[in-house]
Design a binder for these strands. Structure first.
Lengths: 204, 204
DNA sequence: TCTCTTTTGTTATATCTTCTAACATCGTGG
DNA sequence: CCACGATGTTAGAAGATATAACAAAAGAGA
């Protein structure tokens, strides 16, 4: 009945709550020491339950990491969508492109380990990564396609190339390559985006 | 004396030999399952010695991984240097640039896990990565600077941007993003390099 | 309300890892 | 010859993932 369904959903909700708690602690560990330091044991200890209890909620460690990947992908996608929506009123497409590129890099800098998680599969034989990445890349670049004023198929490769350039800089920046070389990542990224928008401007 | 020195160097040589053997097995494991699957225990078993014997040669697992990083960096650097030397006779700088870019991507495709090892610190709080990466980046881009016909300081940022573009594509390709999106990585990379060389051509 | 079933948590255990400690062995240098 | 240092051994601590067996709690139905 109604109460029965409600109580059943209560259980479901509790289960979902625990899963969220686990992921929250996992994100803390991720932020502190990277993906390798995420430990189901440590998470359980921090949550006050003991050891194998978490295996009622996640089949294994990889499943948890997988959820973190998917969440991160959703998060980045939403951040880009917000940036695109926020600059929808801006007339000049170069400016919209700049804001989108800025949002991309900003998210990566705010969540460096999650960004790495996105584009660097932490699993040995990782199948579940391909599909999210595919969907990620497609949906991720929708705002860019929008900035490009709705050209269709042929521009996909161009969009991917734009994405690759943004990712290249962000990835090297997060890896510490720029600081090690004493290179101003801000200026580098700004210049690169400037070049990209100029090129776009030139290319009808 | 002479024999004394020779025997002392014999020991040294044996020690170096064992270290190389360990690294060789580690590279096998790296190629098979990624950096995470590298296990000192398994290496020892495969080498016929048992467990903690390897700690006479490597203080800990991180030191071994560190050596792998440095070796990979040297290897990539040498591959690029070979490519640069091999195309030194080529007159047109665009062609030299193309061959250099091709060598870069080819090395990454031949050693995907080592490439990942290079540009992603596999350790949590890992300092030793910064210095090799700095030297890597500097030396790595020397051939590119050479292709650029010896302009000096101001071009460093441009070279780094070129490197970032190559790395962006190669990194996403190794991560499987392109295959998941059914994108031809060959064509993408070729087009990108073409654009880069055109741009260089345009820019004195 | 009583009972049956499902879900969830527990402890114990097996197996893996890195890494230290204590002890044995072997070759080289004096 | 002898002694020291380098190298290897086994034992074991600490911690990880993951499974098995068992206990308890909570919902569903009569």
């Amino acid at each position: 009945m109604a109460t029965g369904q409600r109580r059943s959903s209560m259980r479901e909700r509790f289960r979902e709550q625990v899963r969220e708690d686990v992921k929250a602690v996992a994100l803390e560990q991720l932020a502190e020491g990277g993906a390798q330091t995420i430990s189901l044991n440590a998470i359980a200890k921090q949550l006050g339950v003991s050891g194998p209890a978490l295996y009622r909620y996640y089949a294994n460690r990889d499943e948890l990491l997988n959820e973190l990947v998917i969440d991160a992908y959703h998060d980045l996608r939403d951040a880009l969508a917000r940036a695109a929506a926020g600059s929808a009123h801006v007339r000049r497409p170069e400016q919209r492109m700049r804001e989108l590129a800025h949002a991309y890099r900003q998210w990566a800098r705010e969540h460096p380990h999650r960004y790495e998680l996105l584009f660097r599969p932490p699993f040995p034989g990782y199948d579940a990564h391909a599909e999210p990445i595919a969907e990620a890349a497609s949906t991720l670049m929708l705002p860019v396609l929008g900035v490009l004023d709705g050209n269709e198929d042929d521009d996909v490769q161009y969009v991917v190339r734009v994405w690759s350039r943004m990712h290249g800089i962000v990835s090297l920046e997060l890896g510490g390559a720029y600081t090690a070389m004493h290179i101003d990542a801000d200026a580098l990224y700004t210049d690169e985006i400037q070049t990209i928008t100029e090129r776009y401007h030139r290319k009808p």
